[in-house]
Nucleic acid binder design. Sequence first.
DNA 1: CACAGGATATACT
DNA 2: GTATATCCTGTGA
Length: 187
Amino acid sequence: MILDRSFFARSVHEVAPALVGCTLLVDGVGGTIVEVEAYDAADPASHGYRGQTPRNRSMFGPPGHAYVYRSYGIHWCLNLVCGEEGTAEAVLVRALEPTQGLETMATRRGLDDPRLLCSGPGRLCQALGITAAHDGLPLDAAPFELREPAGEAEIVRGTRIGLTQAADVPWRYALAGSRFLSRPVRS
DNA sequence: CACAGGATATACT
DNA sequence: GTATATCCTGTGA
């Protein structure tokens, strides 16, 4: 089942756990989502918290689209816009278990250890070739491909990574027991 | 484990 | 204008 806009047109706190276990591909390269974080409009750690800027414009656009931003001046990070248009809710995709296009990802990343290909938001963008060119693109059309998992995924909740604001809310969701997380889950 | 690397935004002078 | 913080990663101690 392909995830369409209606999947994302609800609270980010429903969408985030539902995304764990889904398959994410860009031009046929990618894998299973094993780690995400939720950000909503009332969240001081969210880019949308202080209103719209040129950088976070697509976070305020319609759900079911990508919001790609540059982090620490170096890395790209991929977010999936949720909620209703203008609510500025999004899921940060933090880690994948690589399953398709391993060779392409290894070339882009300059290494071939599968555990280091997509275990972190900046890493997975480099492995999938995600850049500002993907900002604002719909997730239900090429080059993106997003599919629901075959079975039920067992999910663990924890606190988010790298924050000083709202560091205590458990809005990080991960696939239980996955070896491909960016960091162990802390609750 | 420490720290450089350096875009974007905000909060000051 | 300058300073500080940030949804991070690679490298070298």
